[in-house]
């Protein structure tokens, strides 16, 4: 089953990847091979196999509801490319009307 170029573009957008035409071609081939592999797996009868929720046989890892102060703000913002008024500054995300 070969992915269409539209499907590859959609996945690239969701992953925020900017692919060149050559990379897109390669991704289409590789992703299609992966999907083919899953098609093969689908032939197995899993009717009696419970879904794997987690790979560890552990449940209920919880902490008591106790708070402690956050990090100092200078530290929080020190690696931010830009900040203003104690907040992270990014290019505008909601377009103007």
């Amino acid at each position: 089953m070969r992915l269409t170029s539209e499907e590859v573009d959609h996945i690239a957008l969701l992953s925020r990847l900017d692919l060149s035409p050559a990379e897109r071609e390669r991704a289409a081939t590789e992703l299609s091979q992966i999907l083919d592999h899953f098609e093969q797996l689908k032939q197995l009868d899993t009717a009696d196999v419970p879904p794997t929720e987690h790979v560890l046989p552990v449940v209920n890892v919880l902490r008591a509801d106790e708070s402690r102060p956050g990090l100092p703000r200078e530290g929080v913002l020190q690696n931010a490319p830009e900040h203003a008024g104690g907040m992270f500054q990014v290019p505008r995300v909601v377009e103007a009307e």
């Binding site: 203003a84 992270f88 505008r92 995300v93 909601v94």
Partner: peptide, 15 residues
């Protein structure tokens, strides 16, 4: 917060 409300039409600020 976005744009005009923070005095910078090209930015958003995150808390």
């Amino acid at each position: 917060q976005h744009g005009e409300s923070i005095g910078d039409p090209d930015s958003s600020l995150i808390d």
